[in-house]
């Protein structure tokens, strides 16, 4: 899956994903910006450890959950990307201590 982008006059925005710099357009949701950047996995599922990417992009499916500026479980499709934002993948399949 890859996207090409139509030309725009929108300002460019810089943020980071798992510490890597990513360029987006002002007005992009975090989810759109990451898909445009070719990110292949936003999170892994808690139970089976399967990779997920956004499905609905309209706040319904919650498959775009990300850690944004230190806060986990945020909907990437509902948050507008901002300069300097720190976004992290949400790996929820880690070992559970009992």
């Amino acid at each position: 899956m890859s996207f090409t982008r139509t030309p725009t006059a929108a300002r460019s925005v810089q943020f980071s994903f798992d510490g890597m710099p990513v360029q987006a357009r002002e007005g992009d949701s975090v989810a759109a910006a990451l898909l445009a950047a070719g990110i292949d996995r936003f999170r892994t599922t808690p139970k089976q450890g399967k990779p997920r990417l956004p499905y609905c992009m309209m706040g319904i499916c919650f498959d775009c959950l990300l850690e944004i500026d230190g806060e986990a479980n945020r909907q990437g499709c509902m948050v507008e990307v901002r300069d300097g934002m720190q976004v992290r993948r949400q790996d929820q399949s880690r070992e559970v201590r009992l």
Partner: peptide
């Protein structure tokens, strides 16, 4: 709907 939002809001055209 998701693909349409990418197109409408972010000008992203799928492959």
């Amino acid at each position: 709907g998701g693909v349409q939002i990418l197109l409408k809001s972010s000008g992203m055209i799928p492959g």
